[in-house]
Design a protein around this nucleic acid. Sequence first.
DNA 1: CGGAAACGGACAATCCCTCTCCGTTTCCAA
DNA 2: TTGGAAACGGAGAGGGATTGTCCGTTTCCG
Lengths: 219, 219
Amino acid sequence: MPLDMETATTRPRAMRLRADATRNRERIVAAAREAIVELGPDVPLDEVARRAGVGNATLYRHFTDRTDLIRHVTLSVVARTVKRAEDALAQEPDAFTALRRFVFESADERIGALCSLLSDVFDRQDPAVVSQVEQMQRSINAIMERAQSAGQLRTDIAVGDLMAAVTQLTRPLPGTCCAGFDRFVRRHLQLFLDGLRAPARSVLTGEAATLEDLQARQP
Amino acid sequence: MPLDMETATTRPRAMRLRADATRNRERIVAAAREAIVELGPDVPLDEVARRAGVGNATLYRHFTDRTDLIRHVTLSVVARTVKRAEDALAQEPDAFTALRRFVFESADERIGALCSLLSDVFDRQDPAVVSQVEQMQRSINAIMERAQSAGQLRTDIAVGDLMAAVTQLTRPLPGTCCAGFDRFVRRHLQLFLDGLRAPARSVLTGEAATLEDLQARQP
DNA sequence: CGGAAACGGACAATCCCTCTCCGTTTCCAA
DNA sequence: TTGGAAACGGAGAGGGATTGTCCGTTTCCG
């Protein structure tokens, strides 16, 4: 009689990790996110382990390889982004303020790391990733539509436009330890947000971009 | 009586390269710029040589190592940027149109690749690089000041704000062959330009950034 | 046409990264 | 408190990619 070996919830006994193991696992994911943001998606896994304060063997015990680790980092980042989007929408009465809060909080959380996640090893077949990305799109879309309905946000843009620009503007410069850089990022985000306000000050070329548009690429 | 060994113009006899040599040298620099834009600053030099249509030995004959090559690429890109800035200022009667033209042309020339050049191996001691960067700052500043005097550009920004944002927005995503991405870049640049227009729609935090501010980083 | 300059493919040396081995430490339950 | 299992971490072998050089061949130019 085979049992479900995949989910911890159905097998609390066999799957439960020791306290230090779960702590280290979370540390590794967090360190990987930071390292990817700073050094790019090709960061050595030894460097990730070093930042997490664990040995490299511990990293490989939790994640089979780089792809596996990055997949979990992706899930983590997207989940946090969804949460921020929903919180901003629920807690901010003003529509554009909610959008601005979401943008700034995303910048603080280093959403720029997603750029490599989406482009490098993004597995569009993975159901968990796909469904989370879809949920993220819906959450951000809700913020934008409310602002558009309120006449505060120009209507010729879509989720992809916002996220691509925010991602790019918050990407760290390789090699710089973002000391002085962080201060400027907020300025750039604010300038970009000013450009998003209604009424639109220009006519944009092309179509409003969805997240799917950003993921399209030729092999 | 020592002669200037640095410039080809003063020593036409000893320094003159054969025709194919000068052609290959220029090809290598051009190929390196393209390769860096697409594959990042760590692109293998063999790949650069392949794109230039030369053997790798030819590359090493012209440039001692990667740093030397990137230095020349930097000089090339900055020089072209200065030229674009001056042309835009001289040829466009409308102040903001000149700014927009400069921004879009810089995007077309992949100025986003400069981010890695400036951050990775930028030698702030090199007189040639320093003086060219200063000239670039002056040229861009002239465009911005004219637009500000005309009341078309908000006055709480400086050269560093513009260039950092344009650089970030036009940076290539690692791994993607920027097929669909290019179309969106123009949208983002236009949105950002809309945010730059006077009257300002928000109050920015911090100080206006110069190029020097961007180069500052702690070792 | 001849010599020198330049070229290019191939190769050795080197570096870095991945992943595993195994002795040691930490946790947890009895 | 203690025993045993789980987890850890440092070190190092293995592998792949990149750098930089060698040398026979080709191209230029007087």
